[in-house]
């Protein structure tokens, strides 16, 4: 399977880029603040046995930046409209970090097309007293060291100088991320009280050593979504889909197969 070509669809006047490949149950992957400009190895793996759909959120990567992008709720409605526009049905939603937050915001608004939900190191909920990292104060090197548990992996990532194209996309993504996640920082204080509305099977996958959003936040979300199961991934930071790809992909695929 090669890298699928990006297509676009207009969502409320915004050209949203997305890639779609593979066959099987539909899996909608919602990326985190780093975007989904590059086709990652874990996407290749998810496309084995799934109809994988990976949009780039409004403001991120190849997608346009609409005037209407002000806050997280705008991204929630974008996901709902995106699923309608592509007529995605029985969707297994997988959201990483910011993407998990968007998935929860969409779900509490009524997302009948959603069949199951996997939240991976999700933002969106602040567990009182659990420390969080500040991605806006970190420079590039600090960011890699904080989100990856394996420091050798972090140093290797730091050593790879971004191409001008990547640097441009990183900057654009950072602007979009700040729009929705700066204040309140990485969460919506009003979300918690409606999380009981998520009634689809829900699992949370969490790096046990996540320093951006430590597992205490996952415990809080698991407490609030009825029936949600939290699975900790040992020796892993904020990006298990990269640091522990095999375990993460197996957990995602297994959960989808069950439901």
């Amino acid at each position: 399977m090669g890298v699928p070509e990006p297509a676009t669809v207009a969502i409320n006047g915004c050209e949203v880029a997305y890639r779609r490949t593979g066959a099987g149950p539909t899996l909608l992957y919602l990326h985190g603040a780093g975007g989904a400009f590059d086709w990652a190895p874990f996407m290749e793996r998810l496309a084995e046995g799934h109809d994988l759909v990976v949009p780039e959120h409004p403001g991120f990567g190849r997608s346009a930046t609409p005037e209407w992008l002000e806050s997280i709720e705008d991204l929630a409605y974008y996901v709902l409209e995106f699923a309608e526009a592509l007529d995605l049905r029985d969707v297994h939603v997988v959201g990483s970090s910011l993407g998990g937050w968007i998935a929860m915001e969409a779900a509490v608004r009524g997302f009948p097309r959603m069949r199951s939900l996997t939240l991976s190191c999700s933002a969106g909920v602040r567990a009182k007293g659990v420390p969080t990292g500040d991605p806006f104060l970190w420079n590039r090197a600090q960011q890699f060291r904080a989100v990856l548990h394996d420091q050798a992996l972090a140093e290797a990532a730091i050593a790879r100088e971004p191409t001008p194209e990547q640097a441009e996309i990183d900057l654009k993504n950072r602007y979009a991320f700040a729009r929705v996640a700066w204040e309140p920082r990485l969460h919506n204080p009003k979300l918690k009280k409606w999380l009981h509305r998520i009634r689809v099977p829900t699992q949370l996958l969490w790096g046990a050593e996540d320093r951006l959003l430590p597992p205490g936040h996952g415990e809080e979300i698991a407490r609030l979504i009825p029936g949600a199961v939290l699975r900790l991934i040992p020796d892993c930071g904020h990006l298990p889909q990269i640091e522990r790809m095999d375990a993460w992909v197996a957990a995602v695929a297994g959960f989808i197969a069950e439901h």
Partner: peptide
């Protein structure tokens, strides 16, 4: 101050 302090995203136009 650091670059990240001086120029948070959105403080200046892209």
């Amino acid at each position: 101050m650091t670059n990240e302090m001086l120029l948070p995203p959105g403080y200046t136009s892209l």
